[in-house]
Nucleic acid binder design. Structure first.
Length: 268
DNA sequence: CGTTGTGTTGAT
DNA sequence: TCAACACAACGG
């Protein structure tokens, strides 16, 4: 009898080793995950699937040792949007926070939620007051055939910064309008014209809101419950306000309270 | 009670 | 730094 190979299926007391780094067998057949830092072991939880455990180790390795860390699986390539978002997500949380998500099996969900709300986080940790992000005057070309909306540079860089690695490809952002409808728009930087633009999804917005040159589009950020969201809606050119300008329901807060401010004064 | 994950040791 | 092993601590 030679038990040198793997298939030692008889009741051996020996636990089966994992082929994955950071993954250790548990007595009940599940898999534990650990990573070491400064002579200390950091426990990353237990998992039923060996491969899931291996991926958990990979996440921790990226957070603890940077994106050149040795991992079990090769993650997506450098210039990939998802990969970039994940790096952003990792670097914006402490090691303890990441470990906590991994142990509670909530990492994936939280990452996905963060992707959906890109630009909602970060700049302001504002609790519940809507934060105005500015208004953009709709120009003739914005409602023309170019299918894009230029966001004034100063406003863009202040409220919606794009990082160089992702600027050209842009990022998908979700906005809600006053009726609660969600608009999914691509936002990117056009280096040729050195401007920040909303591209994919914009023309649909123009059409449905019946936007004309001279109208305004306003943006704001607020929290619904505890999760931040982005909002946008059109404001018809001044004059007899009709349309949806009455009130904006947002958990009792009337957002557009003082925004009846007349912009035409400085327009002409 | 079953399971987790810590204490510990010995390799690389 | 790492996995292997034993088993105390943990939590439903």
């Amino acid at each position: 009898m030679d038990d040198s190979e793997y298939g030692n299926e008889v009741e051996s007391k020996r636990l089966p080793s994992s082929k994955y780094k950071g993954v250790v067998p548990q007595p009940n057949g599940r898999w534990g995950v650990q990573i070491y830092e400064k002579h200390r072991r950091v426990w990353l939880g237990t998992f039923t699937e060996e491969e899931e455990a291996a991926r958990v180790y990979d996440i921790a390795a990226l957070r603890f040792r940077g994106h050149n860390a040795i991992t079990n699986f090769n993650v997506s390539f450098e210039n990939d949007e998802d990969y970039y978002m994940e790096k952003l997500f990792l670097s914006s949380h402490s090691k303890a926070e990441i470990v906590d998500m991994l142990r509670k099996h909530t990492y994936r969900a939280e990452l996905e939620e963060r992707k959906q709300n890109y630009a909602c986080h970060g700049i302001s940790g504002n609790a519940f007051n809507p934060e105005p992000l500015g208004e953009s005057l709709v120009t003739p070309s914005d409602v023309g055939k170019l299918n894009r909306m230029v966001i004034p540079k100063q406003q863009a860089e202040k409220h919606f910064p794009l990082y160089t690695e992702i600027a050209s490809k842009g990022v998908l952002m979700n906005f809600e309008d006053n009726s609660g409808k969600v608009w999914r728009l691509r936002y990117c930087y056009w280096s040729s014209s050195q401007s920040y633009v909303l591209t994919k999804g914009w023309s649909r917005f123009v059409k449905e809101k019946n936007l004309k040159a001279g109208d305004l589009v306003c943006f704001w950020r607020s929290n619904v419950g505890s999760n931040p969201r982005l909002f946008m809606d059109s404001k018809p050119r001044n004059g007899s306000g009709f349309e949806t300008m009455g009130e904006v329901r947002l958990f009792g807060v009337n957002i557009l309270d003082e925004s009846n401010r007349d912009y035409a004064a400085n327009n002409r």
